[in-house]
Design a protein around this nucleic acid. Structure first.
Lengths: 347, 347
DNA sequence: ATGAAAGCGCTAACAA
DNA sequence: TTGTTAGCGCTTTCAT
């Protein structure tokens, strides 16, 4: 790109070439009804002048924006951290390959989630939407489904009022498998630490755990389940301390996010408990720091960046194929076996 | 928002109201030359029908997009993690408050950084740009400065070819202060772990450290400086192992990012070295996991989300005021004193 | 206080 | 093969 020239429009480009505006447009658009020679001249001139079609013009005539809107999760739920960034990187990458733009929208004090959605959709800023971190009664998903707006959810509803595209990791199956694995390692007393927000991922994961344990005749007792507010560091510690102070003490503590697992590890250290000698701890997410935990955390890997990439492909398919493009995808998270779990201690 | 209605346009709205299109537009725009009664009718109807002005129409007539473009750092430099996400959350929040939209652009195999920039600027998708993680010879910054395009850099160039808006944390001053503090704790042998990419933040931070140590008569020896490729977990460990195996061993290892500091902590543990008993370790960034490290990591806090918010305010000021709106801001990071540093061991 | 007309940049339909 | 005309949705003259 020239370092100094200003942007050039189609009109100006046509003037320079001594052609009409539509001819230039067709040449650039690759239409067949323009002479080979003219096309080359036009393409050449466009490149030289660094011509880039104005999005406004395109949007106006096509009625579409060529952009995908992603709603950022509420700043309130600050679990964010690595997640949002990693997901966005994958999403942006995929959309860039597909020639689509990515549009970010955050709700704020002055504009709630639904207003933001409307801004994107009715203002035709985005041809499709990506949302994540769904709650049990997710208002965004419900509106998007009802209005038949193309969107992809990262995560899924428990009961959907209609078909929609989603991709999710199978937390239910994952925790079912984990429970059986730990039981086979001799564990009999389990505890669960989960977020207190009604995210559906927490629902599925905890359901998998509870169901497996029930089937194995070791139902999870209510006082062995701790719920923690997002980002409440002290609260997480208090709950972890309570769980690890139970008598008899659980030998395996499952945390539904790595963030929560770290809190458990820290409390275990404070209480002088060995991990995994006295208690096994397992997380979920495999955030980059999991490998640096002490001991390195056994946790489920979600490949969040790849999920972002897939979400991009899915939303574009949904846009281009209409409702026939609705897809669902359940990914299997992989358990990263590290050093925070082991056989149950002898009683 | 109605759950079923489709988007309505100005024309349709005017028809419903029995008014002309321009009158409705003026009423909504808050112009004074429309009767009080008409305005109320219009506003009411617009609300009822969920009218949102098409962005295309607005853009076309105003010539501006009302959006800010943010270039995502190259997926190559995967230091990202919490960073991108946190920064974006702040940026999106600030822009939402200011009524601006946020566009994300990622370079890909098929479109390099400068093409992406041109796409945003010449296609008038964005009125202003935000870039971060600047390198010593940052092509993006140079083009933006040369073309006088409104932008804000998070981070800054070492030598700029012209004025531009930036905000940065004062890594130079921070590490100068840290060096003096550690020397006063008795440390005499220092080592430095830094990224091998020419990010300017690394330049400033290392300069601060090296200058202070030189002034104190303890110049940092070249073999006490390790450079690590981004996200090269094994490489980081190898370098850390080399540093901690030097004889005599450094008593203080400064890592320019928390990520690198974690690697040092892990290697220290492997080598059976006590932290901070045998060696002090300090990081930079205060990522959320720093508090969970073993021992909890002493590191500089940048308040990355707040930086995103400030960047949003700055880029809007730059757009609205033109070159008169150019601002620079050097924030002072705060050293979070945790448990990974302490007095130098007795020799 | 309101309506009519023009035009932003682009592409699609039609005419030559 | 090219040029002319029209129109996307909106705002801003200008005229009434």
């Amino acid at each position: 790109m020239s370092e100094t020239s200003r942007a050039i429009g189609l009109k100006e480009l046509a003037r320079v070439l001594g052609l009409s505006v539509p001819t230039v447009s067709r040449a650039l658009g690759g239409y067949s009804d323009v002479s080979q020679k003219t096309r080359e001249r036009v393409v050449q001139a466009a490149r030289e002048h660094g011509y880039v079609a104005s999005r406004a013009g395109r949007m106006l005539v096509s009625g579409r924006s060529n952009a995908i809107g992603m709603m950022l999760p509420q700043p309130a739920g600050q679990i964010t951290d690595a997640f949002v960034g990693e997901f966005l990187l994958g999403l942006a990458d995929s959309l860039a390959e597909l020639g689509r733009d990515l549009f970010l929208a955050a709700s704020s004090q002055s504009r709630d989630e639904l207003q933001v959605l409307r801004h994107m959709v009715d203002g035709s800023q985005a041809d499709g939407i990506v949302i994540n971190r769904l709650t049990v009664d997710d208002a965004r998903a419900r509106v998007l489904i009802a209005r038949r707006i193309p969107f992809v959810a990262h995560g899924r509803l428990i009961e959907a009022p209609g078909p929609y595209s989603w991709l999710d990791t199978d937390g239910e199956k994952a925790l079912d498998g984990l429970a059986r694995q730990l039981v086979s390692l001799g564990h009999r007393r389990f505890a669960l630490v989960m977020p207190d927000v009604a995210y559906t991922f927490a629902h599925f994961r905890s359901r998998g755990l509870e169901r497996a344990l029930s089937e194995l005749g070791l139902p999870l007792r209510p006082d062995h389940i701790a719920k923690v507010a997002p980002n409440d560091h002290d609260g997480a510690h208090a709950e972890a301390r309570a769980l690890l102070s139970l008598d008899p003490r659980p030998t395996a503590v499952i945390a539904l996010t790595d963030q929560l697992a770290f809190a458990v590890l820290e409390v275990a250290r404070e209480l002088g408990l060995g991990v995994p000698g006295d208690v096994s701890v397992v997380g979920f997410d495999n955030v980059p720091m999991a490998v640096y935990a002490n001991p390195p955390l056994t946790t489920f890997d979600q490949n969040i960046r790849e999920s972002g990439r897939i979400a991009g492909d899915m939303v574009v398919a949904r846009i281009e194929l209409g409702e026939a493009g609705i897809r669902t995808l359940l990914l299997e998270p992989k358990l990263e076996l590290r050093a925070s779990h082991g056989p149950a201690p002898a009683d």
